[in-house]
Write a protein that binds this DNA or RNA. Structure first.
Length: 516
RNA sequence: GUCCGGUUCGUCUAGGGGUUAGGACACCGCCCUUUCACGGCGGCAACACGGGUUCAAAUCCCGUACCGGAUACCA
């Protein structure tokens, strides 16, 4: 039997990272077992569902590389079938019409539900007067146009049980389960019915979803049984919590829970997927970096654990705005992934920042690209671009850094970090004369045949520093700040070489930071 | 309230009768270094609590506490 799993989000907002992880686990399971990964959009809540949200979910899945194997199912398209199923159960006496007028929920819904649930056992779970209404009367009232909901008739004695692939044996007494509504009085099929019908129709063999559905499962099993269908396997996933161990919610935590936030913040899909995979699941290995292929190979439901995981971040702290491990992992990917895989992302980032130049494009981008060992002399060439990216990626955390921290390599229009200017330039007023002087020296030394290479630059700068009786660091750090706008970066010799003689001279002679 | 589940460093986690309780991130220190990273070395830091079973419990059992989920004519 080939496995068939589905990811079934409701399109009522952007893709939550918890949902994204659920999708990922479904995908990994399908691939690992050679089965199918399906997508069903649960858009039966017409009021809250939006097309925009559906698009955003699709976009998010695509970004993570989780394409469904078959056509997307829209649950709303199946409403007629759901109704049919409810009526079939009514016909077979497994469900009944409830003529109780509908009660509108107002105020704090969660609380009113809890209150109702508290009172319910006293009245008795099976005290609905319509539960045993003679069939003729029920038919007559329905024919007369009296509105009714259809409820599943849950037996008074007995229990449901299933073996959850993660949480183990789960049992629930019927007495703890209300006669659940299958069809609203306006004919709208309710969630538990819709899910079961669709899962049957789609041939779902394994339901992998959040732990918040653990108790729903018992109700759904009752529906499967009433419908005479085979009950699938279930695997429930631990939840992803906020740092205060509360629910990680869109409303409370904002865009930090949205998958697209990470895409837009310059995360690599491989890195974020890797991070997500390790939240609530373990490959049981000291390693933590896994490609998609490795995740697929290693994934198993047994590796999922039962306790919820905290998504750790510090609100209002720019350095720790999201989970540190996610940031670290992204940086790790940026500096260690094959250059050929990284370059397209850098290209996209530079394009978005209007820093891209077509001359960077290498014809062999799709193949394994090895960075040149020394800075190519032809600034702006594909080799130069490859070399530069390889050098600067070593200390970047996100793709955004290529257009911000690394801006000075791709444009003459870059900003100066004022604290760097203070520390490395203004603190040494002599640099105001020395750096243009260094430019003259470079011009004299490299104006002819001598190539502007790190080795040659080093000897020139060393002599220069000695003449001025200053430490090499003063010259280097001052130059770094003036030439790149920031205090951090690669070896200054490499920076000179990357920028090339012309830009180096121009920038060394710039008065811009001296308030002249 | 009731039902269900959970609890190993700050966080993600390994381990599951005998371990100096392992790793990763974060943090701190040292080394490397013209800066910052990377890297290397080191440090801080955990079995929720109480009973039991056992020669031996973080590991098995029971209870308590705390946390989470569920509860609907929402999904």
């Amino acid at each position: 039997m080939t496995t068939r799993v589905r990811f079934a989000p409701s399109p009522t907002g952007y893709l939550h990272i918890g949902s994204a992880r659920t999708a990922l686990f479904n995908y990994l399971f399908a691939r690992h077992t050679g089965g199918k990964f399906l997508l069903r959009i649960e858009d039966t809540d017409l009021v809250r569902s939006t097309d925009e949200s559906t698009r955003s979910i699709l976009e998010g899945l695509e970004w993570l590389g989780l394409q469904p194997d078959e056509e997307i199912v829209f649950q709303s398209a199946n409403a007629a079938k759901h109704r049919q199923a409810a009526y079939r159960l009514l016909e077979e006496g497994k469900a009944y019409r409830d003529f109780t007028p509908r009660e509108e929920k107002a105020g704090d819904v969660k609380q009113s539900i809890a209150e109702r649930a508290r009172e319910l056992p006293e009245k008795g779970m099976r005290d609905n007067p319509y539960r045993d209404l003679p069939r003729e009367e029920s038919d007559r009232r329905a024919a007369a146009g009296e509105p009714f909901a259809i409820r599943l008739k849950v037996a008074a004695e007995g229990k449901t049980e299933f073996e959850d692939k993660v949480y183990g044996l789960q049992e629930r007494n019927y007495k703890d389960i209300e006669d659940l509504v299958l069809l609203r009085s306006d004919g709208h099929p309710l969630y538990n019915l819709a899910v079961v019908c669709d899962d049957i129709e789609m041939g779902i063999t394994h339901v992998i979803r959040g732990q918040d559905h653990l108790t729903n499962t018992h109700k759904q099993i009752l529906i499967y049984q009433a419908l005479g269908a085979k009950v699938p396997e279930f695997a429930h996933l631990p939840l992803i919590l906020a740092p205060n161990k509360g629910k990680l919610s869109k409303r409370k935590h904002g865009e930090i829970v949205s998958l697209t936030t990470y895409r837009d913040a310059g995360f690599l899909p491989d890195a974020f997927r890797n991070f997500l995979a390790l939240l609530g699941w373990s490959a049981n290995s000291e390693r933590e970096i896994f490609t998609m292929e490795e995740l697929i190979e290693k994934f198993s439901l047994e590796g999922i654990h039962r306790s919820n995981a905290v998504f750790n971040f510090r609100e209002g702290d720019p350095k720790h705005w999201t989970d540190d491990k996610a940031i670290w992992m992204n940086a790790e990917y940026i500096r260690t992934m094959p250059l050929a895989s990284l370059l397209p992302y850098v290209k996209a980032e530079l394009k978005a920042a209007k820093l891209w130049r077509d001359q960077y494009e290498s014809v062999s981008l799709s193949e394994e690209v090895a960075a040149p060992v020394a800075a190519p002399t032809e600034t702006g060439s594909p080799e130069w671009f490859t070399f530069t990216v390889n050098v600067i990626r070593q200390r970047f955390f996100t793709l955004k850094d290529f257009s911000t921290q690394g801006r000075a390599y791709f444009s003459d229009d870059y900003d100066f970090d004022q604290s760097a200017v203070e520390k490395n330039l203004r603190k040494f007023p002599e640099l105001r004369q020395w750096l243009p002087e260094l430019a003259d020296r470079f011009a004299a030394e490299f104006g002819g045949k001598k190539p502007f290479t790190e080795e040659n630059i080093e000897s020139v700068v060393k002599v220069f520093a000695e003449e001025k009786g200053t430490k090499l660091g003063v010259i280097m750090n001052g130059a770094r700040t003036l030439l790149t706008g920031v205090a951090v970066g690669p070896s200054m010799l490499t920076v000179f070489a990357i920028l090339g003689l012309e830009r180096t001279l121009r920038r060394l002679r710039s008065r811009i930071v001296w308030n002249d």
